[in-house]
Simulated assay, not measured.
Amino acid sequence: MAAPHDVPSAAQLVAAVRDFLADDVLPAVEGRVRFHTRVAINVLGMVEREIELGPAQAAEHERRLAGLGVADDAELAAAVREGRFDDSALVEALRDAVGAKLEVANPGYLGDG
């Protein structure tokens, strides 16, 4: 937890709201409200994971870009269009980037390997 903030952390607060929606609200609603409650639960899960994983993922993404010799995603896209990369290095970097996105968006899509 970063100063000056106390417990609970932002991630813990988001988790508490997500749990409330899942445990108390979802069983009590139906139809359109139930659907939107499920969406809200999923969104809060994504926010929680981004809060927890985001800083390390951002640092790793910067290292990946530097390893490819580009400063940012726009420069990476331009370099890909120009065909400036060895295929294996590019594929590995992109696979890692997509994996990080899935860790936040929906870790279930990552499977077991």
Rank of each mutant, 00 (worst) to 15 (best):
D6C: 10
V7H: 15
V7F: 15
V7M: 11
S9A: 00
S9I: 00
S9V: 00
Q12A: 03
Q12Y: 05
V14A: 10
V14K: 05
A16P: 07
A16Q: 12
V17D: 08
V17L: 15
R18E: 10
D19K: 14
L21E: 07
V25N: 02
V25L: 04
L26D: 03
A28W: 05
A28G: 13
A28V: 05
V29A: 09
V29H: 06
E30I: 08
E30Q: 15
G31M: 06
G31R: 10
G31E: 09
R32S: 10
V33L: 14
R34L: 09
F35G: 08
F35T: 15
H36Q: 11
H36E: 13
R38S: 04
V39N: 08
A40V: 02
A40L: 02
A40P: 04
A40C: 01
I41K: 01
L44R: 00
G45Y: 01
E48V: 00
E50S: 07
E50Y: 07
I51K: 04
L53H: 07
A56F: 06
A58N: 14
A58W: 13
A58P: 07
E60V: 11
H61G: 07
R63I: 05
R63C: 03
R63P: 06
R64W: 13
L65A: 11
G67H: 13
L68T: 09
V70N: 09
A71F: 08
D72S: 05
D73C: 10
D73Q: 13
D73R: 11
A74V: 14
A74G: 15
E75Q: 13
L76T: 03
R81D: 11
R81Q: 11
E82C: 04
E82I: 05
